[in-house]
Simulated scan of single mutants.
Amino acid sequence: MKQLLVFLLFAGMFCWLMFSPVYKHVLVLRQALLQQEADYLLEVGASGRYGYIDETLIEASKTRLAESGFEPEKLVYAVGASSGAEAGDASAPLARGEGLKLTIRYPYDGLLNIDRLIGLEPEAGAMLSAGGMKMSEYVP
């Protein structure tokens, strides 16, 4: 009986040691893709041509991320301005020097479930997050 218990514990630990790095690699890759997309949206949105990030830009971003394996309906975008103004309105772009903030969040989607083999419970509702702020270059 003791040998069976040792075997089961060893098998669980062996599976975790073997597969955990693969899941962590996917997690790091998703984080990098989210940050790359956030940087791109901020660069485009804060350019002298736009000064905002509206729903059209967000939908195009969701399409690009869907090509990388993300589920568009699970992506959460938060757009704001450093002054508290509306940063997603094309009719009122942010003036030059005002900060445009963006955060993109995406759920872990069970990537941390393998940690249960060693007794770690994944946090419920936890999400990957990427974002940043860039000063608007729009001149009316």
Rank of each mutant, 00 (worst) to 15 (best):
I118R: 02
I114P: 12
Y50F: 15
G125K: 07
F14V: 14
K24D: 00
G119I: 14
L112W: 03
E71V: 02
F19L: 11
G125R: 06
A78F: 12
K74R: 03
E123L: 12
A87R: 06
V28F: 08
A85M: 13
L111F: 15
L94M: 14
L128A: 05
Y77I: 09
L42F: 14
G45L: 15
A11Q: 11
A38G: 02
L120N: 04
E43P: 01
E71M: 03
Y138A: 01
L27C: 03
M133I: 15
L94I: 15
E59Y: 15
M135W: 10
W16A: 00
Y138P: 01
Y23D: 08
A46Y: 01
R64T: 00
G80V: 08
W16P: 00
S47W: 04
E37N: 09
L57V: 00
C15K: 03
Y23E: 09
S83A: 14
W16N: 04
H25R: 07
S47I: 05
M18N: 09
Y106H: 03
Q35W: 07
L33Y: 01
Y23M: 05
G125H: 08
Y77F: 14
G88I: 15
T103F: 08
L29C: 07
R30V: 10
L94T: 07
Q3W: 06
Y40P: 14
K74N: 02
S68V: 04
A66I: 02
L75Q: 01
T63R: 07
S129R: 10
D89V: 08
L100H: 04
A124I: 11
L17D: 02
L128M: 13
Y52W: 10
E98P: 12
G48R: 12
G99Y: 14
R30I: 08
L102V: 14
L102Y: 09
G80W: 05
L57W: 04
M135Q: 11
S68G: 02
Q35G: 03
A95I: 14
A81R: 00
I114Y: 12
M135V: 13
A92F: 11
A46Q: 00
R49K: 09
L75D: 04
L5E: 00
L41W: 04
Q31A: 13
Q36S: 15
I58K: 01
C15P: 07
L120R: 09
Q3S: 06
P72C: 10
L29T: 11
M135P: 09
P21M: 15
N113S: 07
K101Q: 12
G51I: 13
L120M: 06
G45N: 12
V22S: 05
Q35K: 04
E67N: 14
P93Y: 04
G99R: 11
A90I: 04
R49E: 06
R64H: 03
L117V: 13
E123Y: 07
D115P: 07
L102N: 07
R116V: 00
S129K: 12
S20G: 10
D54K: 01
M18S: 00
E71A: 05
V26A: 02
F14N: 13
R96M: 07
I58V: 01
L4G: 00
H25T: 07
I58F: 00
G110I: 04
A60Y: 06
F14T: 15
A92Q: 11
K134E: 08
P93N: 02
D39V: 03
G125Y: 09
M127H: 08
P122H: 13
S129L: 13
